[in-house]
Amino acid sequence: MAQGVDHPPHITLDGTPLEIVDHFCYLGSTTTSNLCNNKEIDTRIGRAASNFGKLSTRVWRNNKLTITTKILVYKTCVLNTLLYGSETWTTYSKQERRLNAFHMRCLRVILGVTWKDRVTNEAVLSKTNCNSILATLKQRRLRWLGHVHRMDTERLPREVMLGQIADAKRRVGRPNLRFKDCCKRDMDSFNINANSWETRANERLLWRRDLRAGTAIYDEAWLDNIKQKRLRIKNAAPVVDPRFTCDKCGKKCRAAIGLFSHKRKCLRH
Score class of each variant (00 low, 15 high):
Cys182Phe: 03
Cys182Leu: 12
Cys183Glu: 07
Lys184His: 10
Arg185Gly: 08
Arg185Pro: 00
Arg185Tyr: 04
Arg185Gln: 12
Arg185Trp: 03
Met187Ile: 01
Asp188Asn: 14
Ser189Ala: 15
Ser189Asp: 14
Phe190Lys: 10
Asn191Leu: 14
Asn191Thr: 09
Asn191Lys: 14
Asn191Glu: 07
Asn191Asp: 12
Ile192Pro: 02
Ile192Glu: 02
Asn193Gln: 04
Ala194Ser: 12
Ala194Gln: 12
Trp197Ile: 05
Trp197Asn: 02
Glu198Ala: 05
Arg200Tyr: 03
Asn202His: 13
Asn202Tyr: 02
Asn202Met: 12
Asn202Asp: 07
Glu203Trp: 01
Glu203Phe: 11
Trp207Ser: 09
Trp207Tyr: 10
Arg208Asn: 11
Arg209Leu: 05
Arg209Asn: 14
Asp210Thr: 10
Leu211Arg: 05
Leu211Asp: 03
Arg212His: 10
Arg212Tyr: 08
Arg212Gly: 11
Arg212Thr: 09
Ala213Ile: 05
Ala213Lys: 12
Gly214Glu: 01
Thr215Val: 02
Thr215Ile: 01
Ala216Thr: 11
Ala216Cys: 10
Ala216Met: 11
Ala216Leu: 13
Ile217Asn: 12
Tyr218Ser: 09
Asp219Lys: 05
Asp219Ala: 08
Asp219Met: 06
Asp219Pro: 03
Glu220Gly: 07
Glu220Ala: 15
Glu220Lys: 15
Ala221Arg: 15
Leu223Glu: 09
Leu223Cys: 10
Asp224Gly: 10
Asn225Thr: 11
Asn225Val: 00
Asn225Gly: 09
Ile226Phe: 08
Ile226Gly: 03
Ile226Glu: 15
Lys227Tyr: 02
Gln228Met: 07
Gln228Asn: 09
Gln228Leu: 07
Arg230Met: 08
Arg230Ala: 13
Leu231Ser: 09
Ile233Asn: 14
Ile233Glu: 11
Ile233Asp: 11
Lys234Ile: 07
Asn235Val: 09
Asn235Gln: 14
Ala236Asp: 07
Ala236His: 11
Pro238Tyr: 06
Pro238Gly: 04
Pro238Ser: 04
Val239His: 15
Val239Ser: 15
Asp241Leu: 01
Pro242His: 05
Pro242Cys: 03
Arg243Thr: 13
Arg243Glu: 14
Arg243Met: 12
Arg243Val: 13
Phe244Met: 00
Thr245Leu: 00
Thr245Cys: 08
Cys246Val: 08
Asp247Arg: 11
Asp247Trp: 02
Gly250Thr: 04
Gly250Met: 02
Lys252Met: 03
Cys253Gly: 01
Ala255Thr: 15
Ala255Glu: 08
Ala256Met: 06
Ala256Leu: 13
Ile257Gln: 10
